[in-house]
Design a protein around this nucleic acid. Sequence first.
RNA 1: GCAGAGAUGGCGGAGUGGUCGAACGCGCACGACUCGAAAUCGUGUUACGUAGGAAUACGUACGGGGGUUCGAAUCCCUCUCUCUGCGCCA
Length: 430
Amino acid sequence: MIDINLIREDPERVRENIRKKFQHHKLPLVDEALELDARRRALQQEGDARRADRNRLAKEIGSLMKAGKREEAEEAKVRSKENNDRIAEIERESGEAEARLKTVMASIPNIIADDVPIGKDDSQNVQGEVFLEAAKKPFEVPYHLDILESLGGIDLDSARRTSGNGFYYLTGDIARLHSAVLTYARDFMIDKGFTYCIPPFMIRSDVVSGVMSFEEMEGMMYKIEGEDLYLIGTSEHSMIGRFMGQTLREGELPLTLTSYSPCFRKEKGSHGLEERGIYRIHQFEKQEMIVICKPEESDYWYEKMWRYTVELFVSMEIPVRQLICCSGDLADLKYKSCDVEAWSPRQQKYFEVGSCSNLTDAQARRLGIRYKNEKTGKNEFAHTLNNTVVAPPRMLIAFLENHLREDGSVYIPPVLRKYMGGKEKIEPKK
RNA sequence: GCAGAGAUGGCGGAGUGGUCGAACGCGCACGACUCGAAAUCGUGUUACGUAGGAAUACGUACGGGGGUUCGAAUCCCUCUCUCUGCGCCA
């Protein structure tokens, strides 16, 4: 959600931004927002004046009653009632205008960064930096599920019986590797100065509707029956929800947090679940990083954050690249975003393992996350950023494909060994 | 889960239908005093919205939502949370 003042002062800039994102159908929204804003303000002015009258009349009635002038008081009551009828009318009208304005403002995309490549959709995303050599294996790399099965690390049949498609049992060394990666990632982020946090895995509906749109909610969130609670789709939901409506002290910023949580997703609107595999599933675990900072620092943190993910993968000897999101592929709330992609030796291409976004003040404005600017003494909206540290099921695919050896064993890089009881490899099951 | 008590500014805490954005205290900011500080004294100090260049004015907000009333921090309904006791549980 952008600042309405920006539309008032420079509507052309907002329109240009919409064009850059190839959302031409949204261009009329700018004028609609201006109209609604003007109407809402006019209504507020009349409403305020009427309310001032109401307050004045109420006081008058009070003193008349005290003075025993009953008739005059009754007369004033009638006038006050008429006034109140008009107030109710204004409130209805301005409520409508307000609600529509909110919808319109929510659909107008955040202003994107100057250096975001212009492009229509994800096919026009741009490769950024590349880390480690994306090598070919001298043997054929099987599908990740086949590797998992050969290692005795997965049981999908049972999961389908107990929970349906989109769930898995991880077993033995693979389950251990899964936990090892999360634990290593947690320690990695703590070493970078982030504060570790385990958030609630369920949140109330008001928080859900704060952190996402209605469509997203329908497509992603599982609701708990009979309760006003939803399973989180990512810890970002409860981590950002934590600061809804809060005013932070400037000295507290930047808040650099890393959170662990299981993530639950319906995956309704997306490309669907894969029948074979663990690329897209209903339940997975994720280590996330969140930064809430002053506006002037968000560019700095964005760069730092995606590089942390890269550094983590490189330390596990997995080749990755940065893929810069083009304007058309950027969600409306985002100022700038990039994916970290891992190399798949089987497919001979990169695939997404994490996503880093700078939302500037768009999310903070929507959720009322402010901080007190010590210099100006004013409360201003903070900037929020989020990034995946690592989401193990998906990273496991990259891990297995890259570290598989010709003899069927899987190499464990040194950084993970202390979390794996010193093991240097996982052997195939006989 | 049941019963009772409660939720007021950055904090503590008054206030049970009008004169309450809210006493008083703490904190904080500025000033005086001081070589400097402490103490003391004085002044100021909620947020959001609208109008205005600004000073300021008006409106809204006393956990959230709804209601009664000319008028609600105060009365009613409802939700959430906290505390105490009982129950239950890892």
